[in-house]
Computed example of a mutant assay.
Amino acid sequence: MWVSPYMGTGNGLGNGKCSMNHTHIINELKPVLSLSDNACLTELQSGEVNRVYKLKDGETRFAVKSLARDEFSGINRFHQFLLQEQLAHREIAPAPVWLNKAQDLWVESWLEKRLEQEIADSDKPGILAGVLAQIHKQPITVRPLDLPKRLFHYVEKAFLEEDDPLVKQTQQVIRQYALDYVPAEHLVLCHNDLSWGHIQSLDPVMIVDWEYAAMGNRFFDLASCASINRFNEQDTERLIARYARQADIAQSTVEHYYYEQKEVVDTTEALWTAALNASCQACV
């Protein structure tokens, strides 16, 4: 069946006119996309950092992301734009269309979410494992994620002192798991934010929201997927078992590195949340 990838929040108007708080976005996009006066934005369910819109102008559709609230992530949107161009060429991601100079307004082709049938929650870990394995096999080489640098970037943005327990935990994790080095057999293209909601289609596989993607540790990506989707122990076992088969890696090896990287993911998410909270407080 075909469904919208997000549910509307009611901020878009059905009469072809735009609400006033969307006017500045429309005005910026008009000359770039040759929009008519009837172009309208509908705000969709968004994340904690970005606002996502569906842009409609006659029969033309775009997905628009307002990134103005992201003052802490450290993401280089230009590099992500170039990466997504490669992914779109591989037909695994929507084609990016435009990024403004301030890197706070992103436009890409619109995708409807397409699922052939309702999928049981118990089947989702296995499907996500297969999708991750397919992402990890993509013949795309981009800049590797410097995870220690990213972690200390979050420390700085969260205004954490050196004696803060989370900072000490970060230093310990970096030392214990040698995060400045990824073995060649573990280094692959990673999504690093793969929730079930980011899968738009399974046949063919089509994924959205690649903003945290980079070359990185496949097992960090696996542990991140389990955390983002809030998998319980049984779900995690399914994820690991299916990924081991799909990636042709011994299950015991996947289990070992998964639980090693889980601690890294937990620390990363704690720092990300601290940086987000500090950013939100600064805007109040």
Rank of each mutant, 00 (worst) to 15 (best):
S4R: 13
T273Q: 14
H136A: 03
R114I: 11
L87S: 08
L99Q: 08
A270S: 14
R230A: 13
N27C: 08
Q86M: 12
Y181C: 08
M215Q: 13
N76W: 01
Q200E: 10
A129T: 06
Q117W: 05
R245M: 10
L147H: 06
H136L: 02
P144M: 00
N217G: 06
I135L: 04
R51E: 11
D123Q: 15
F81E: 06
V208N: 10
S34Y: 04
C280E: 13
D164N: 15
L147R: 07
T268L: 12
A39W: 01
L166T: 11
D123K: 11
Q117M: 09
F62S: 05
H198E: 14
E59F: 06
I25G: 05
V3S: 12
Q171I: 09
D123C: 10
A133I: 01
W2A: 09
Q246M: 12
R114V: 12
T170W: 05
P183A: 11
T267H: 10
H191K: 04
K124G: 10
Y212G: 08
A120S: 14
P94E: 08
L179V: 07
I92E: 02
W210A: 10
M215Y: 02
N50P: 08
L271R: 05
R218I: 04
I127G: 11
K56G: 00
E185C: 11
G10H: 10
L82A: 10
Q80C: 07
L82M: 12
D193R: 03
N232W: 05
Q45D: 13
D193K: 06
Q246Y: 05
R61H: 13
F81C: 07
Q246T: 09
